[in-house]
């Protein structure tokens, strides 16, 4: 019966299911926070998260969701802070061969484009 109790515990499913990014964004906006959204819009080669994956972040760098397996989230959050300050959207590109501004890459060898916009 111990197994039964564990599986039926009231909080089992609701607390472990992934949080909804857009619901988090709405809560933050209602609470008066600045919010930006980053979305994977294109991928080439192997990429950790599919097109349409998204991450929302507030001005305190609280975040919900993901755009990679953790490789580029730091850089995306950094860019998102600028976007929520000046309101201008940005299209970022990350890849293993990327020699541009970001000194981050995807260990998997793919390339992703991430669109970052302010939510307001």
């Amino acid at each position: 019966m111990a197994t039964d109790d564990r599986v039926t515990a009231g909080e089992s499913a609701s607390t472990v299911a992934p949080a909804d990014e857009l619901a988090a964004a709405m809560d933050w906006l209602k609470a008066g926070h600045k919010v930006a959204r980053a979305t994977v819009v294109s991928t080439w080669g192997s990429s950790p998260r599919p097109v349409g994956s998204q991450l929302v972040v507030d001005e305190n760098a609280n975040m919900v969701g993901s755009v990679s397996g953790g490789c580029i989230e730091g850089a995306v959050v950094h860019e998102a802070k600028q976007v929520m300050e000046n309101g201008a959207p940005k299209l970022l590109e990350f890849g293993v061969s990327d020699e541009q501004a970001w000194e981050v890459g995807l260990a998997c060898g793919g390339t992703v484009q991430v669109y970052v916009e302010k939510m307001e």
């Binding site: 857009l22 619901a23 964004a25 709405m26 906006l29 959204r37 916009e117 939510m119 307001e120």
Partner: peptide, 14 residues
């Protein structure tokens, strides 16, 4: 994304 769009989107999803 505009808040009005977000509200409409969340309503559709709900």
């Amino acid at each position: 994304m505009k808040r009005a769009t977000l509200e409409r989107l969340q309503d559709a999803r709900a």
